[in-house]
Amino acid sequence: MVPIANYLVLSAMLFLIGVMGVLFRRSALIIFMSIELMLNAVNLSFVAFARVWNAADGQLFVMFIFTVAAAEAAVGLAIVIALFRQRDSVDVDEVNLMKG
C-alpha cells in the first residue's frame, strides 16, 4: 500500500504546476488548461482522503467538481471565442478595456 502522503505530495506538485501555468503563460487557452490541471490535483487529494476514511463522500465531491469543471470549460471557452472575435488574439495582456 502506497502511503497516502505520497498521493498528497503528488497532488500538491500538480497543483503547483497548474499555478505556474496560470502565472507565467499569457494565452487564455493555456491558462484554462492549467485551471483544469489544478482542479484535477484537488480531485486526487479528495480521492486519497476518501480512501483514508473509507467513505464515499470524498468521491462524491469529485463528481461535483467534474460538473463544475464541465460548466467552467463551456463558459470559459465561449468567452475565449468571444474574445478572439473582438481582438483576433487570445492573449490575456490584450484584455485591458476595464483598466483605468
Partner: peptide, 24 residues
Amino acid sequence: IVYAGAIMVLFLFVIMLLDIRRME
C-alpha cells in the same frame, strides 16, 4: 469518459476553430 473525452475534445475543438497563428 468525461474529462479526457468530453472536456478535452471541447478544448481541442475550440483551439482548432480559432486557428491561432501568433501566440505570445
